[in-house]
């Protein structure tokens, strides 16, 4: 959900390095990590209001 390293809290990891997959998913990791880094630098809650991928989406 946050892409935050569990060994170093100031490091965020994404793309194929984390999980080999499609390019669009790697690009999405960048977006997710940017949100995480903003929250981290502002000292905000890392998880509030965010959902894990595939956590289940409502049928429209």
């Amino acid at each position: 959900m946050t892409l935050q390293s569990q060994k170093k809290e100031w490091v965020f990891i994404g793309g194929d390095l984390r999980k080999i997959g499609f390019m669009v998913d790697a690009m999405k990791d960048g977006l997710v990590a940017a949100e995480s880094i903003e929250r981290y630098l502002k000292g905000m809650d890392m998880k509030e209001g965010r959902s894990r991928d595939y956590a289940g989406q409502d049928i429209p």
């Binding site: 100031w10 490091v11 965020f12 994404g14 390095l17 790697a26 960048g30 981290y40």
Partner: peptide, 19 residues
């Protein structure tokens, strides 16, 4: 190194260096 970057004053790192 990552720790070296932190010492240089970088407060957060995104790593996406692939395979």
């Amino acid at each position: 190194t990552l720790d070296g970057l932190k010492k240089q004053g970088f407060e957060a790192v995104f790593m996406g260096k692939g395979t």
